[in-house]
Design a protein around this nucleic acid. Structure first.
Length: 674
DNA sequence: GTAGGGTTAG
């Protein structure tokens, strides 16, 4: 009975397996010779081999080996070992199968133990061991691999190639090249290994040179070259060589090289080139239904092309392709949905979401983040509650949504729920919550997050930057300084900006300016944000000339266009110094409309230097910009009052009443003029 | 047992 069942399996297997993997044919033959000891001499020989191991009972060595390989592939090494240990009989394949398991796991000591205990080894046993040693991380075992390579009784092409690839992976291309030259016979894989080895180690010239010298190429040669070149940022060169060489072995494998290129162009926003390649993917020779030619483009080709359109925000073209697809997988749907989400087109996104057959966690998260980003937090939260399986991204998306929409309560609430649920926050979570602590000026929340950051394995620079900002916003400038010092050599512009800004906003102008100089000495290029802090520091301590100089150097040396904030600081600097007319001239010459900060700076300066006339101009401008604000009225009123100009003071008061300006607490002098 | 191969969420 058992044999009959097997027979059926054998008969059925080749039809779908042979097409993909030519070596399956060999497996099947092997199988057949072992299991059917009737018929021709070839089969009889197979049976004889099996008998040698077993004695009288017919063993099922093939089944045993198959079982071990299966368990090994499933990662169930313990079970595999149990089967191996209790097996009544083993052949070399059995041992090799078991060794494979340990090699794949990197447990080389165990593998070696088995290998040393083998009654007989074949080339595969040796190759397995070498491959294990050579692919171990850290390349510490490459010497062990080499030792076995030297010891083995006979080497085949695979032995040489494995050793070469080991050296290539360890970055030792000289040794790889030496072996390559020494080997008695080279095959395509040997050449491919060298080409990809050079590319892996950044030697593009030699890779291309080797590729051109190859006696024969297959699709793997081209795929390897293309992906390696793209990794070395040689996209156009990759495309050029690829298009020159066509399809070396004529198989469908070449599609993946097309896909790599399409992705390369797509990711760089070069959608026309991506589309050109997409349209170029050849027809296959076999015919589909009705003799029509069949596209070799596979699902990934379509998905990658749609992705390219999505990347540049062209949802129309993406949707057109999406509509043309005869078969879609979750990637297709998710890419299209994320396209709409990125364009904030939640209407279309939700339509697709409803039509999608089996939305996965990616899909749900896309929708959630889309709603969260567009401010529709109810929808986001609703989906979040409804989704079948949440992951960290789901939590983070909603929390980030709350944060962006300044619903701090919602964010903190969900965050604590997250902690109660035993979820482990990551840098995304923590940076959202840090932004909230900063926004709320909530030092105790910030301290909690700092604790969590400390527990992280490898907190990155952005999170440290957020900590600096949080602490300085909360007034804990010493703590900010501590983090700043901790970042050491990894400081980026944002780190510097955060600390300089912290100093500047707390009136530590000297420290801010000192840090600014240090930053320039270390050749960190300041940004417009740096200059906002620097200028405000200068304004604080009345460094007129220095302020002017920084403003000029910002424009001339760094080519930064001053924003309205920079102008406000400049007006502040010049005005505080008493150069009110110059301050007014600056305002008049500004390339953009002055805002309330600019006029406010002038008004403050006028108050400081008792220039009522100009104060009136500034105050009136402010009244226009902020019709509800009582501040300019109050200030102007006080100035007139202080100067004893009561007519004008009362006029301001009447103006205020006429415009129905509500008086703010703290400006009570308007109520009792005399 | 050796070479290459793409796409989605914060």
């Amino acid at each position: 009975m058992r044999i009959c069942w097997r027979k059926l399996c054998i008969l059925r297997r080749p039809t779908f397996l042979l097409r993909r993997q030519p070596q399956c044919r060999l497996n099947v033959l092997h199988f057949a010779t072992r299991q059917f000891p009737t018929g021709d001499s070839r089969q009889a020989r197979g049976f004889a081999t099996a008998r040698e191991c077993t004695g009288s009972r017919t063993p099922d060595l093939f089944a045993l080996n198959k079982q071990i390989s299966h368990l090994v592939r499933a990662g169930r090494l313990g079970e595999a070992r149990a089967v191996f240990d209790t097996a009544g009989c083993r052949n070399t394949v059995t041992w090799n199968a078991m060794i494979t398991g340990y090699v794949k796991r990197g447990e080389m000591a165990r593998a070696r133990e088995l290998f040393d205990g083998m009654p007989e080894r074949d080339v595969t046993s040796w190759n397995l061991m070498i491959s294990g040693y050579v692919s171990c991380r850290g390349s510490g075992f490459i010497e062990e691999g080499r030792e076995l390579f030297e010891q083995m009784p006979e080497r085949d092409c695979v032995s040489w190639n494995t050793m070469i690839s080991g050296y290539a992976k360890a970055g030792r291309m000289d040794e790889a090249l030496w072996l390559f030259k020494c080997m008695p016979e080279r095959n395509v894989v040997s050449w491919n290994t060298m080409v990809t080895g050079f590319l892996r180690n950044g030697d593009v010239e030699r890779a291309v040179e080797f590729f051109k010298e190859m006696p024969e190429r297959d699709s793997a040669s081209l795929s390897g070259l293309v992906s390696g070149l793209i990794h070395n940022n040689k996209l156009d060169e990759a495309a050029k060589i690829f298009l020159e060489h066509g399809n070396p072995d004529g198989g469908e494998d070449i599609v993946s090289a097309y896909n790599t290129l399409i992705a390369g162009y797509g990711q760089r926003g070069r959608v026309e080139e991506a589309r050109y390649l997409f349209d170029l993917i050849p027809f296959s020779n076999d015919r589909g239904k009705g003799g029509a030619q069949k596209f070799v483009r596979n699902l990934v080709s379509w998905n990658t092309m749609i992705m390219s359109y999505v990347k540049v925000g062209n949802t129309i073209a993406a949707r057109e392709l999406f509509g043309q697809m005869t078969e879609r997988d979750t990637f297709s749907w998710n890419t299209m949905i994320s396209g709409y989400v990125h364009m904030s087109n939640m209407k279309e996104a939700s339509k697709l979401f409803q039509d999608m057959p089996n939305p996965d966690t990616f899909t749900w998260n896309s929708m959630i983040s889309g709603y969260a980003e567009t401010g529709n937090l109810e929808f986001a939260r609703d989906l979040f509650e409804k989704m079948p399986r949440k992951n960290l991204v789901s939590w983070n998306s909603v929390i980030a949504g709350y944060e962006k929409n300044e619903d701090y309560k919602g964010a903190v609430g969900l965050f604590s729920q997250m902690l109660t649920n035993g979820e482990k926050p990551d840098r995304h979570t923590l940076s959202s919550i840090l932004a909230i602590a900063t926004g709320l000026v909530d030092l105790s929340l910030g301290l909690q997050i700092h604790q969590l950051v400390t527990k992280m394995v490898n907190p990155d620079v952005p999170i440290k930057n957020s900590l600096i900002t949080m602490y300085s916003r909360c007034g804990a400038i010493v703590e900010a300084q501590t983090i700043f010092d901790e970042v050491k050599l990894q400081k980026n512009v944002i780190t510097w900006n955060a600390m300089i800004g912290g100093y500047a906003s707390h009136g530590f102008a000297a420290e801010a300016l000192e840090l600014f100089e240090m930053m320039k000495r270390l050749e960190v290029t300041p940004t417009y944000i740096t200059f906002i802090s620097v200028l405000s520091a200068c304004a604080h301590v009345g460094l007129v000339e220095e302020g002017r100089r920084h403003f000029l150097s910002m424009v001339k040396e760094y080519g930064i266009e001053p924003t309205v904030e920079h102008f406000a600081s400049l007006v502040d600097i010049v005005g505080r110094h008493g150069q009110l007319n110059e301050a007014f001239d600056i305002i008049k010459d500004m390339p953009m409309k002055p805002d309330k900060a600019v006029w406010g700076a002038l008004l403050g300066a006028c108050r400081m230097h008792d220039n009522v006339e100009l104060a009136r101009v500034a105050a009136e401008a402010l009244m226009q910009l902020e019709p509800e604000s009582s501040a300019p009225y109050v200030l102007l009123y006080n100035m007139y009052a202080d100067a004893g100009r009561w007519d004008e003071a009362n006029e301001v008061r009447m103006m205020m009443e006429r415009n129905a300006i509500k008086k703010l607490k703290g400006y009570s002098r308007v109520d009792s003029p005399q």
